[in-house]
């Protein structure tokens, strides 16, 4: 029996889809059988971020309505053993499915997969209610900005009202240089305000955009700091105790020298 995890944020544009794609890929690389479920009906994007947009025949709504069998709506990612995508319908709207139907779909997928990751749409309306209906646990993604943190707090309240207590937090796009000069809320500020447990911190990394341009998740790139952060998050989801990577004092002499010569300064942990 697998686990259904919804990845949500309230605010749009904070990186839910990128997070879903990368954690899913990282879990598959760890040998898990994973399905990524795009619940953003009408505005599907997980397919392009994963580079699977040309392989879609049937979608989630087709599977729910019985137009096709469940298996036909699952796209196997040939690059990563064990990774599957169930795409959202693009020409329908959020009311095409009900929370009950989503719950049933999640139950069926749970039988076949170790992890079902749901990419939740932005907002708190029907799409959100559908996305969380079948979830066992929730991950809240935010960026260290007032608007995103405020929305995250609202989402945490709504999750709790729907019996998804103690969600875990991912702080995305943290910029160590801005934190250092006091122009960005740091990890402690954000956790303190939201009052939930931290699952991981992903540094701002332009390789994320390069990866989505190519349709290849950043976790496959060993040089990507964000990719490394996502791999750590996947391990924590599996129950491993992985410490936050410190970019400060605990670095080796070589790291410090390298940074000195490249002129970059990092002051935070990821």
């Amino acid at each position: 029996m697998g686990e259904v995890i919804v990845i949500t944020s309230g605010k749009g544009g904070v990186g839910k889809t990128t997070t879903t794609a990368n954690i899913g890929t990282a879990l598959a690389l760890e040998g898990k059988k994973v399905v990524l479920l795009d619940a953003d009906i009408g505005l599907r994007n997980l397919d392009v971020v994963l580079g699977l947009e040309n392989r879609i025949v049937y979608d989630m709504v087709d599977a729910i309505e019985g137009v096709c069998r469940l298996k036909q709506a699952l796209i196997r990612d040939k690059r990563f053993e064990g990774l599957y995508l169930m795409p959202a319908a693009q020409t329908r709207d959020k009311n095409a499915v009900t929370p009950d139907q989503m719950q049933k779909l999640c139950e069926e997928l749970k039988d076949q997969f170790d992890y079902v990751l749901i990419d939740c749409p932005a907002g708190i309306e029907q799409g959100f209610k559908n996305a969380i209906a079948g979830a066992d646990r929730a991950v809240v993604v935010t960026v260290p900005e007032v608007s995103a943190v405020r929305d995250a707090d609202r989402i945490i309240g709504l999750l709790s009202a729907n019996d998804l207590h103690s969600p875990q937090l991912i702080i995305n796009r943290l910029r160590a240089d801005m934190v250092k000069r006091g122009d960005m809320m740091d990890i402690n500020d954000t956790i303190d305000i939201l009052g939930i447990d931290l699952l991981g911190v992903v540094p701002d990394d332009e390789k994320i955009i390069v990866s989505s341009n190519r349709g290849e998740p950043a976790v496959t790139e060993s040089s990507s700091l964000a990719g490394k952060a996502y791999r750590n998050i996947a391990k924590r989801i599996m129950g491993e105790d992985v410490p936050l990577l410190s970019l400060n004092e605990e670095n080796t002499l070589m790291d410090r020298l390298r940074r000195f010569f490249s002129g970059k300064s990092n002051s935070s942990s990821i």
Binding site: E145, V149, R150, R154, G157, R181, M185, D186, I193
Partner: peptide, 27 residues
């Protein structure tokens, strides 16, 4: 000078205080 004025006036402190207040009202 920035070093000495850092504690009260950084934009992240302002963000944190504004957020705390707005969230009390939201909640």
């Amino acid at each position: 000078f920035k070093f000495f004025s850092k504690d009260d006036n950084t934009s992240k402190d302002i963000a944190r205080e504004r957020l705390k207040l707005v969230l009390v009202h939201d909640r």
